[in-house]
Amino acid sequence: MSNQLSGLDRVFVELGEWLCGFGDGACMSGYGAYVWLSVLVTVVAIAINIWLPIRARRRWLARQRDEHELRAAQASGDRADA
């Protein structure tokens, strides 16, 4: 089947046949590798969506830490002056 195809289609079909080597579960007939491509894209998108709020939270916390340290340094500086 893959001999009649060209370019990307052939890559995907061969990839699908190669995946059959991992067992029946991974084996998808015809253009099955396209399924894995779309699952991969979706999983990446889910991961990015989870990671973005975590990163935003970390950044906020880092900013707060800097401000707290600054305030503590100022307070100790004031005490030293006194």
Binding site: M28, G30, Y31, G32, Y34, V35, S38, T42
Partner: peptide, 11 residues
């Protein structure tokens, strides 16, 4: 559509 229909599960 054989196995390719499975894309609907994410799409």
């Amino acid at each position: 559509q054989s196995d390719a229909f499975r894309i609907i599960y994410v799409h």
